[in-house]
């Protein structure tokens, strides 16, 4: 029996007069991977950011692990400890070593002991194959390495849901694979629940249990798994897939 982890109900968002998200509805079960696809600049990232309170929304509500979240009334600081997020620009803290980057939030936010947090951070570093870089500073790492550290940093908080916002968009092609492989491993081995905004179509096809196709702030298609790629329903989605070289 699948356990519902997140439900988005009638979520709408505007900037002033301009509505950017129109009546978004979807739900996600524990262990599922959802990919959000669609042209650039149509609100995928904005939607993702609404899910952990980095953007507010005007109407609708979220239900996360049974807890109803109304716009602007949520205790996001608590919720975010359960919702990890990784960004396109990695955003490791440049004034801290890799190890400090990973242990900062577990120690300061979750009040775990330094010893325990560091032991776990080293385990995570081994897992992302960067065990030798614990004492390096972010500037000494390549983009792909930074992004894997950023994922490790999010995992150190033991999130129940992970949001990935175009995490490979600013990486060299050869770096992309290492990051995508890691995300795939999180899905296959850890059954991590994830929502992924990406333009990597092959990756999306391999990993997605659900696909959300958006255009102009509206969900045009919501399909299970591979159906979207083999049998898109709308002309817009057909055009989109045809334009993507994969």
């Amino acid at each position: 029996m699948a356990e519902r982890i997140l439900e988005v109900k009638n979520l709408s968002k505007s900037y002033g007069d301009q509505q950017v998200l129109h009546d978004i509805n979807f739900s996600l079960n524990k262990g599922e991977v959802m990919t959000m696809l669609g042209p650039s600049g149509i609100g995928k990232s904005t939607l993702l950011r609404c899910l952990n309170g980095l953007e507010d929304f005007q109407t609708g509500e979220l239900v996360f692990e049974g807890q109803t979240i109304k716009p602007s009334a949520a205790n996001w600081q608590q919720l975010r400890q359960k919702i990890g997020m990784v960004f396109q620009s990695y955003d490791l803290f440049p004034n801290m070593t890799v190890l400090q980057n990973i242990t900062l939030a577990p120690i300061k936010v979750q009040k775990r002991s330094k010893q325990e947090a560091e032991a776990e951070a080293r385990k995570l570093l081994k897992r992302v194959q960067l065990a030798d870089y614990a004492d390096a500073y972010p500037r000494e790492l390549s983009g792909g390495q930074k992004q894997r550290i950023a994922i490790a940093r999010a995992l150190a908080m033991h999130p129940d849901l992970m949001l990935f916002d175009e995490v490979t968009a600013s990486l060299d092609p050869e770096m992309v694979r290492s990051v995508l492989d890691l995300i795939k491993e999180l899905s296959e081995q850890d059954h991590m629940t994830m929502i992924i905004v990406t333009h990597e179509m092959n990756f999306a096809r391999q990993i997605a249990d659900q696909v959300l196709f958006l255009d102009e702030g509206t969900i045009l298609e919501q399909t299970a798994g591979k159906d979207f790629f083999t049998n898109p329903q709308t002309q817009r989605a057909k055009d989109f897939l045809a334009s993507m070289d994969f």
Partner: peptide
């Protein structure tokens, strides 16, 4: 940068923690 602050927020930091550490 705002993205630094966002990534601190995404880790569940309070306003004071964001100020102090980032």
């Amino acid at each position: 940068s705002q993205t630094q602050i966002d990534s601190g927020k995404a880790l569940g930091m309070s306003n004071w923690q964001l100020a102090r550490y980032i």
